[in-house]
Write a protein that binds this DNA or RNA. Structure first.
Lengths: 254, 254
DNA sequence: TGATTGTTTTGATTTAAATCAAGGAAACAA
DNA sequence: TTGTTTCCTTGATTTAAATCAAAACAATCA
């Protein structure tokens, strides 16, 4: 009985059988190397909605990969303004911003029931010095995060409320599609308030913009549920180059 | 004669004698490892003001470290809006955002006469898999870049024009101080237009804000020259936590 | 079940920064 | 030197989004 349950949990954590394989750390690794990666992955109980994964200021020990669900990260300034810095979907890595000074500059909260793979950074670092392809993939992922933040900066600095919300939706849609979810019908896991904060806008502006998009027939919403009717027009509004810089992003190949 | 000039240039590129040692890649390496790093560094002629280091879309081959001078990086969207994404001072690394898809997502231009160290990425990657401390330092630098971009995001999303310009100046001041320049007297290498673009504001707003800071006695300016009279007040305006996340940043230890 | 709390929508008003406009000061070239 | 271009400053006006305000709607809980 005990051995069965161990085996079951082992199967569950196995990178080699994980459907997120190509969106996550194992991309490009051969089977033997994936098995070595599997050995350092720790799996704990899923987080419930609103549970913290870590808190700003905490000591950095591990990188986390989202297995299912979603996570938001946010920083708080000394004046108390909160800024959401990231929304992480399955296959994406959390905590890369904490490496440089060994503590988390942001907090991370589950937006829904979320399970994660924990990768102790010391082990990961050691393993990556033995597996060049893992090393390379880690660099790629970090580089992508930098490039993604830079597109977000452009969004904030140069774009109107309409363009920002459109870009947010198009980006989300692309990433969901890459994960085999519908690209036109999905649930926002963030509240209007969170979306506004993320995009540098107020909740009222987000709400009004959604209403206008709806009256223009671009999409329809019921609270968190979104149905995009005219993805093409939305992409155009977003400036086609949505701020998704993932290699798996459909808009890149289109 | 020939051997002399070769020797001279070898001395000039030597990381082990470089004053930027602790702000750059060699931080934490022992002498032998620094010498190995020195072997892969390529040094070319300095760039003149307004010369391109690389262009958006170009194939990625190397990371560049600024030796002297300064560089700005910027992306251009399909609609033609330009967004400055970075201002790089001596000891800082350019091109980390290009690793993930092997091409530069941004262009890089010299803001003044600027000399650089070129680090071919293939060699750097190979070397870093042999030198764990170099590997770690690379991760730290990339992580710092991510964290820095995230503070910039907060700046753009939540802060007023005053706060943004103050934060920009305080950040620049800290980084200059870490490089043994004056923290209160310096030349902006970016134009008002560039500063505005970087901070998501217009040139007129930057100009007016500088004028007001001046009339309030916070600083004085003559074109690019800036003299900060009340750094403390400026820091307070910036929210104390300036968006400098470098470990060498004085505000961290203060 | 109703009471309480939190979230979203919509409307009226204000405001910070953008835009429009024009003059002045440096930098640069012929 | 003078003309040309680029950059910066300052003023007047407009505007997009914030703020203030209130009601409608969901969700949660006793």
């Amino acid at each position: 009985m005990t051995s069965t349950s161990i085996k079951l949990s082992a199967i569950k954590t196995a990178c080699k059988t994980c459907s997120l394989h190509d969106l996550c750390l194992p991309l490009g690794l051969d089977l033997g190397d994936i098995e070595r990666l599997d050995e350092i992955v720790k799996r704990s109980r899923p987080l419930h909605k609103s549970e913290y994964l870590f808190n700003s200021g905490e000591k950095f020990t591990s990188i986390y990969a989202v297995r299912s669900g979603s996570i938001k990260t946010f920083t708080e300034s000394e004046q108390g303004d909160e800024q959401i810095t990231g929304l992480y979907l399955p296959g994406e890595l959390i905590g890369l911003d904490a490496i440089h000074d060994n503590q988390h500059p942001c907090s991370a909260i589950a937006l829904e029931t979320t399970s994660l793979c924990e990768l102790p950074f010391d082990s990961l670092e050691e393993l990556s010095s033995q597996i060049p392809e893992l090393h390379r993939q880690l660099f790629r992922i970090m580089s992508k995060e930098i490039a993604g933040d830079q597109s977000l900066l452009m969004l904030m600095a140069q774009k109107s409320a309409d363009e920002r919300l459109a870009a947010f939706l198009v980006n989300l849609s692309s990433r969901l599609k890459a994960r085999n979810f519908s690209e036109t019908e999905f649930n926002l896991t963030m509240s209007r308030k969170d979306i506004g904060n993320y995009l540098g806008l107020t909740i009222e502006t987000i709400s009004r913009t959604f209403s206008r998009f709806q009256s223009e027939g671009l999409l329809s919403t019921q609270r968190k549920y979104v149905n995009i009717h005219k993805l093409g027009e939305l992409k155009e509004l977003a400036g086609i180059t949505d701020h998704c810089t993932t290699p798996d992003c459909p808009s890149k190949t289109a």
